[in-house]
Amino acid sequence: MSTDNQSTTDADADPGSDPETEFDAAELQALRERVDELEESIADAETGDDQKKMTIVATQGSFDMAYPPLILGSTAAAFGWDVVVFHTFWGLDILHEEKSKNLKLSAVGNPNMPVPNAVAAIPGMDRMATRMMEKKIDENGTATIEELIELSLDQGVDLQACQMTIELMEYDEDDFYDGVTTGVGAATALQHMAESDIQLLV
């Protein structure tokens, strides 16, 4: 430090000796402000690194496809992550208070079903397959879709309902669970995806 003082004195005495070290008051002030700015942005970046972000896009509204985004979303929230689940097309039904309680498992075209497609196509088979699955879920101690939605919202998961598909499906904003974010579109989803560590399409 003492040499710094010395060199300043020298520069004052002889301005021509080292023009590189000469700053006028305005330049010094600008530099100080720039340093403050950079320190702030570094602090912000460090804070930002602490919290992981995840964006899930939920496009499916069948009983089985409602589970993965809800389970991953609520678990990520337990990790303290910032989570957005963007629901679009049939994914909207997961957030629809009435429809979410009647989501169906499709028996047709599902190779894991114990019956051939010709049998699965018989009216009422979807309902039967769904009932069987619901029974298994209850026996296994797996949470219901409604429980997982409430849990996710309680934990601060941002469940978003795509505005374009709300209108396309002729749903009303009041049809959704309290706490669901409406009035958002693809740009909002993309913005969060760009900032996310994890992005999933379900």
């Binding site: 389970i71 609520s74 678990t75 296994n140 101690g141 949470a143």
Partner: peptide, 9 residues
């Protein structure tokens, strides 16, 4: 009696 993700949450 509770299964994933309940124990964690």
């Amino acid at each position: 009696g509770q299964s994933c993700p309940m124990p964690i949450v």
